[in-house]
Amino acid sequence: MNIFRLAGDMTHLASVLVLLLKIHTIKSCAGVSLKTQELYAIVFATRYLDILTSFVSIYNTLMKLIFLGSSFSIVWYMKYHKTVRRTYDRDQDTFRHWFLMLPCLLLALLIHEKFTFFEVLWTFSLYLEAVAILPQLVLLQRTRNIDNLTGQYIFLLGGYRGFYILNWIYRYFTEPHYVHWITWIAGLVQTLLYADFFYYYFLSWKNNKKLQLPA
C-alpha cells in the first residue's frame, strides 16, 4: 500500500458516500444516471468475486464490502425507494448501457492476463469500469442543472482513478516485475473520459458559477 493508492481508495470511498448522502438525506437522485450505477454494481460484482476465496487484508475485504454494499444500495434506492424513484429522470437517462457491456466482455475474452473464469471476469470489470461513467456524462449534458453534490460525486469518482495512475507509476518504479498493461491502459482511458468534465468543473469552481457542460 502506498499513499497514492490510499488517496485513491479514500477518494473513491468519498464519491460513493457523497452520492449515498445525497440520495439518503434529500431523498432525490435528480441528475444521477441509474445506468451508470447499475454498471458500477456489475463492475464491483465481477471484480470482487474473489472476496470469499482470496484474503489480502482486512482493509481490502472491508473496502470491497463497502463498495459492493453502497453500489447495490444506490441502485436499490433509485429503482425501488418510493420517494427517490420518482426523482429519477428516466426519459433523459437513455444511454443503452447494455451495449457497453458486450464489447467489454468480448475484449476481456480476447485480451486478458490469464484465461481463467475469474481472470476474464476481472478484466471485464476493468474495461466496464473505464466506460461506466458514459451514461452519467451524457445525462449531465442533457440536464442543464447539475446540483453540486452530483458534480462533486463525479469529480471524486474521476479523481480516484487519477490517484491510481500515480500508484501504478510508483509501484512500477519500486516493485520489480510490477507490470500490468491492461490495468494501466484501462485506467488511463477511464481518467481521460473525465477530462472535459474536469475542465468545466474547474472553470465553474474558478468563476464560482453553476457547473454547465456544453450541449
Binding site: 493508492r5 471484480r47 474473489d50 476465496t53 482470496s54 489480502v56 470491497k64
Partner: peptide, 10 residues
Amino acid sequence: EEEYFDHDEL
C-alpha cells in the same frame, strides 16, 4: 506457478 488470483488492488 500455482493458479492463484493475484489482485491486491481494489
